[in-house]
């Protein structure tokens, strides 16, 4: 037992040395989320255990290598010991208790970092080869940059449009895969203002290493200002002409009216607005707002020469609100 004291002293000394060494290194980027605090706490616990176990095994091994080396001229054998049931029992049971304890800590911390927050805001992160897009459903716009208000719990709904991707901002610590056909959830509450980098952490093909998106955690005021700006941009996009273009497709106008001047079932919309129209009954008129409105709600009243009557549905006046009809007219004006 003369070895017990020196080995114990060396193990304790080495443990502190290794732990201090780990502490002194710049190991991880600075944490920037509430969940990350829990993650980092558990990392700290792991690092302490690693420092101890590393020192325990390496010190005993190196000590044995030095102390129990065969001396010159010694030709004898080592101690004839087959083992020790007590020791084996101890180094089975004690590690078992430690790992079950870590399992317990792993469980409680996992529950903490995955817990839903009552006031969380949903943002949809859509991944495809090799880009990210973020939909803000509450405010009805999407963005290629991820803006987040500091202190606001966020629920990311992760979607993948083609292959597997994974959502990882190292400063937020936690990550999750985006899987085609599923919506995976990742909860993050950013707590430090700054600019970060979202990367794809699942090999996704040619440009995997470049699949990134800028992340900006900003103050709530700055966030509101950004949202207002995005909403205004969205509204600017949301003109009568743009809505009319959507109706052209959704209401089936596209089936009979071309945009490029070609003759389909009905007259083309190219150059239609303001042009004189000749009708099957011989009358003529200029296609102004009132004329187009009438053509949509009551098409048989003025059938253009060369086109059959009774083809266009007579009920668009019921299907479409006046606003929508005016949007379509606004769109027609742009087809020149």
């Amino acid at each position: 037992m003369k070895h017990f004291l020196p080995v114990t002293v060396l193990v304790v000394f080495a443990t502190f040395l290794v732990a201090a060494g780990i502490d002194s290194l710049h190991l991880m980027p600075e944490n920037a989320s509430v969940q990350g605090e829990t993650v980092d706490w558990l990392f700290g616990l792991h690092f302490k255990l690693i420092a101890f176990l590393f020192s325990l095994v390496i010190v005993i091994m190196v000590y044995a290598v030095v102390v129990f080396r065969r001396r010159a001229g010694d030709d004898g054998e080592g101690m004839h010991i087959h083992g020790s049931g007590t020791l084996e029992f101890i180094w089975t049971v004690v590690p078992a208790i430690i790992v079950v304890f870590f399992g317990y800590i792993g469980t409680t911390t996992l529950i903490t970092v995955t817990a839903a927050q009552p006031d969380e805001v949903a943002i949809e992160a859509v991944s495809r080869q090799w880009a990210w897009n973020f939909n803000y459903p509450d405010d009805g716009f999407s963005s290629e940059e991820l803006y987040l208000p500091v202190g606001q719990p966020i629920r990311f709904d992760l979607k993948a449009m083609d292959v597997l991707h994974a959502f990882w901002v190292p400063e937020f610590r936690v990550k999750a895969d985006a899987v085609p056909g599923r919506t995976n959830v990742l909860r993050i509450t950013p707590n430090r203002i700054g600019e970060y980098n979202l990367v794809c952490a699942e090999l996704c093909g040619t440009r995997h290493s470049y699949m990134m998106a800028p992340v900006k955690v900003v103050s709530r005021e700055a966030y509101s200002a950004w949202v207002a700006q995005k909403v205004a941009e969205e509204a600017a996009k949301n003109t009568p002409e743009a809505r009319g273009a959507a109706l052209y497709i959704s209401q089936g106008c596209k089936g009979c009216h071309s945009l490029d001047g070609s003759k389909v079932v009905g007259p083309t919309w190219k150059g239609l607005y303001g042009a004189p129209q000749e009708h099957t009954d011989g009358t003529t008129a200029i296609a102004d707002d009132e004329y187009l409105y009438n053509s949509i709600v009551n098409p048989n009243s003025q059938v253009v020469a060369g086109y059959p009557a009774n083809v266009m549905p007579q009920n668009y006046g019921d299907l479409l609100t006046d606003d929508n009809i005016n949007n379509i007219i606004a769109y027609i004006k742009t087809i020149k």
Binding site: L42, H46, I50, L53, F102, V113, P170, R173, A176, A201
Partner: peptide
Amino acid sequence: GLTGPPAATITTDLYLHDS
């Protein structure tokens, strides 16, 4: 053996996974 457990506890694995 020592770098395994931090990847085994899920909380820390969420950081280490695919790194």
